[in-house]
Design a protein around this nucleic acid. Structure first.
Lengths: 164, 164
DNA sequence: CTAGCGTTGTCAAGCGTTCAACTATTCCGG
DNA sequence: CCGGAATAGTTGAACGCTTGACAACGCTAG
């Protein structure tokens, strides 16, 4: 009890906070559910495929891919293993560093991504862009930038996850 | 291929979308991690305890509690079972409807909630309120309201989770 | 009383994440 | 060169969450 009285949230702040978590938890769940339902992959897998599709040669080192998708190495390793089982990604030894592995998007993976993208984009429009005015969207950009700045200034544990 | 060309995201929209998921995934994870680390409970459990603590008699019917915490009945049933194991919640038969169960916050549960609250509030300030200006906060309220309106107008599956 | 129907809640299987080793390779100082 | 530290990535077990099938119950009508 060395706490000199925590700065409790005001009624307004409490309301803002509850709305925020409710809104964004719903939004993320809605996007994830659409992908899972229509394309049989969770949002995390979709993002891995997107990152690979944007990389030169459709290839990335595992660590780079982990950073790009804000994932821990362990999680990424398991995820890529599952993507490999589906034939969407292929792993190969890195020619320049024999410790490393390079993940490459296969043709099948690119096809799966191409098939999933239209529905996903439509869902993103539906839950976010269609709901907001142009001005709100501009405002949201500023808010997200501020939050990401806070994230960047917060120490993280060994991997990509928040610690404190 | 009856798709007359999906409305792809513009470069700006794509950037907005990626920032949004990154920012809010991080924020939710950061709050969850703090609670897990300092109080041994995930955010979902914390919210259940909060809802109970705000209810008359610290008690709610399981279904009401599920709605209040945007959870499916099945998920809530598991969660309450675990909270009961820890002695934080007690379940009893409902006196007015013998099909039903009433979940009640125990003294221990209230104590656990009281112990967890200050750190949680501090974390919420850190990741959200401290990062935003007063005007951004006002803007965020509007945005969240718009998203929640979209959520409300979206059909859900049998439980509380988004379907399409 | 009992048959049908909707509601309430639980159980079990499958999946994904995390944590803690563990191997192999590279880097760097002596 | 050699030996220790750091880096890259994988693995397996334990855990928690979600989903879908299912059982128990109560209400209403014949």
């Amino acid at each position: 009890m060395n706490d000199p009285g925590p700065r409790w949230l005001s009624a307004g702040e409490q309301h803002s906070w509850r709305d925020a978590i409710q809104a964004w938890q719903w939004l993320l769940a809605a996007v994830d559910a659409q992908l899972q339902r229509d394309s049989g992959m969770p949002l995390a897998y979709y993002e891995i495929l997107v990152r690979l599709s944007e990389a030169p040669d459709h290839s990335l080192r595992m660590t780079q891919l982990a950073e790009a998708s804000s994932s821990s190495k362990s999680r990424l390793s398991h995820a890529v293993a599952r993507l490999e089982e589906r034939g969407w990604v292929r792993r190969a030894d890195c020619p320049t560093d024999r410790r490393g592995q390079v993940a490459t998007l296969t043709d099948g993976g690119f096809a799966a991504l191409s098939a999933a993208a239209p529905g996903h984009v439509e869902q993103v429009r539906k839950v976010l862009f269609d709901a907001l005015t142009a001005e709100q969207l501009r405002q949201l950009d500023g808010i997200n930038t501020a939050i990401l700045a806070q994230a960047a200034s917060t120490p993280t544990d060994a991997d990509g996850c928040p610690a404190a």
